[in-house]
């Protein structure tokens, strides 16, 4: 998956336009058109035939994922990935902090491209010094105390939450599931109106287990592709601006993370490109957003201080 995603980078805007048509089309299958788009791009000399095949394959696996999983099923996947994260990182049980985090996060989700997931976005602080944040399919979002400490105001914290919402709206978690997991039984049980036999139940549970493993491994150990991180950063800049924040906040946050960058550490350094590389890539999107008159207000400063005064 990682390799094929990288192939998208050098592809021209014409190809992006073809994919955009696919996104708007209501009657065509993604795989069909994804393959066609790749072929058009190859014919036009933008990518090689081998690359076109790889893009076609990626489109096909994405088609399977999108066709097969409903928001309800994504929600169940998200719950179990969340339980796995909570097995590694203890929750930070503080009502005022978590309540503020949810108000801020849900406000950002409301102005995102995907305001609704099956049961909505939920946020939780993790009691860990590690600098990290995670988002599961369906919108369970976690941020460590270490990451919170990098932020000095509401807008910087908003930048982290908006980046995670970006991963959810772009379906990056679901795309981390290996295409080979989509067996006939999975497809069949998703559409057949009959009860599962015990053998089918065992197979579906095994595939569920493997899918949860794929996503958790990607979130905690391997990381998403550089391109997916870039897209989540760009989505974050847009979400910040739509909410009325100065989207420069994502640059400030990345600069602070850069000061704390610890290569080889078991935190965001293990799963993300360097903050400086990310700043370079998101700069253009940040610069194209409208700037608000004020970067903060006394109300924002006061509610931010109050929320985290006990931790």
């Amino acid at each position: 998956m990682k390799m094929t995603i990288r192939i998208f980078r050098p592809v021209s805007s014409a190809f992006v336009a073809v994919l955009a048509i696919v996104a708007l089309s209501t009657c065509s299958s993604f795989g069909e058109i994804g393959g066609l788009g790749a072929q058009l791009a190859a014919d036009a000399g933008y990518i090689s035939d081998t690359q076109a095949d790889a893009v076609g394959d990626a489109a096909e696996s994405a088609e399977k994922a999108f066709e097969t999983l409903t928001p309800e099923q994504e929600y169940y996947v998200g719950r179990s990935v969340a339980a796995n994260i909570l097995a590694d990182y203890p929750p930070l049980d503080n009502e005022s902090a978590n309540s503020y985090l949810n108000t801020l996060g849900q406000t950002l989700a409301m102005v995102s491209d995907k305001p609704f997931t099956f049961k909505g976005y939920r946020f939780l602080l993790l009691d860990s010094d590690e600098i990290n944040a995670f988002a599961t399919p369906g919108g369970f979002i976690f941020i460590t105390r270490g990451m919170l400490e990098c932020a000095t105001d509401e807008a910087m914290l908003a930048a982290v939450l908006a980046h995670e919402i970006g991963h959810v709206q772009l379906e990056h978690g679901i795309k981390a599931i290996k295409a080979s997991r989509w067996t006939d039984t999975i497809t069949k049980t998703a559409i057949a109106g009959v009860a599962m036999t015990s053998a089918e139940m065992a197979e579906v549970t095994a595939v569920f287990d493997d899918s949860i493993g794929d996503i958790t491994q990607t979130l905690v150990v391997n990381g998403y592709s550089k391109d997916q991180e870039k897209k989540a950063d760009e989505a974050a800049a847009v979400i910040l601006a739509r909410a009325g924040y100065d989207s420069e906040a994502i640059i400030f946050m990345l600069e602070e993370m850069n000061r704390r960058w610890n290569p080889g550490g078991h935190d965001f350094a293990a799963t993300h490109p360097t903050p400086n590389e990310r700043i370079r890539k998101v700069r253009k999107t940040v610069d194209s957003q409208p700037r608000p008159e004020r970067s903060s207000t006394p109300v924002r400063e006061e509610r931010y201080e109050r929320a985290f005064s006990e931790i």
């Binding site: 929750p91 369970f140 998703a190 139940m201 287990d209």
Partner: peptide, 30 residues
Amino acid sequence: KGFNEDVEREYRAQTDLDFTWVDRMETFGH
């Protein structure tokens, strides 16, 4: 259908994961 409550129950029985805080997160709506 597909990945549903029953599958989650089966998965939980096999993995022994704790869902207490996942359930609690779901109450955090505004």
